[in-house]
């Protein structure tokens, strides 16, 4: 705790780009390509590639409106290339599994604030016992039974 009470320099932009890079690299590796370091997977899995593409697509879809063009354009181009490569290799991918179109970030935020305000009005008592809930952000939709594709974090 030597750094307690100190301001820590921490760039979320850098974190975001690192995570995006990780997903794109994971997708290409699970499509049989080598990583930038020359590492290949012994057993590439199309479902893992799909999950990585979907994750990268979700981040780009959400954050592209606030990205600089010199950052957004190459990332979109790379995601599009990987997705087309994936579809060529795994042509039976259902259309509903494709990455969604870019949505309005402004609308997403406005909806989130509205939901939060409505929740606060409906439930002003902060002492009420917390009940686990599905994410309340727009776009989540009604909670669905999990497919189990993702697993709980280790140690939880």
């Amino acid at each position: 705790m030597s750094q307690a009470n100190q301001s820590l320099p921490f760039s979320v932009s850098e974190l975001t780009l690192t995570i995006l890079e990780g997903f794109l690299t994971a997708a290409s590796m699970h499509m049989g390509e080598a990583s930038p370091e020359g590492v290949r997977l012994e057993k590439p899995e199309p479902m893992q590639a799909w999950l990585a593409l979907k994750s990268a697509g979700a981040l780009l879809d959400q954050l592209a409106p606030i990205m600089n063009a010199d950052l957004r354009v190459p990332l979109h181009a790379r995601l599009t290339y990987l997705f087309e490569t994936f579809e060529a290799k795994v042509p039976q991918t259902a259309s509903e599994n494709r990455t969604p179109p870019v949505s309005s970030l402004h609308g997403v935020v406005e909806e989130a604030w509205k939901e939060m305000q409505v929740s606060a009005q409906l439930d002003p008592a902060p002492s009420r016992a917390p009940v686990p809930q599905a994410p309340s952000l727009p776009g989540t939709g009604l909670p669905q039974r999990g497919s189990g594709l993702l697993f709980p974090p280790r140690g939880r």
Binding site: L51, G57, L137, G141, Q144, G146, L149
Partner: peptide, 12 residues
């Protein structure tokens, strides 16, 4: 939220 919203249908 982007990751949770998009991937929650596939989460355990």
């Amino acid at each position: 939220s982007a990751l949770v919203s998009e991937l929650s249908p596939h989460m355990a």
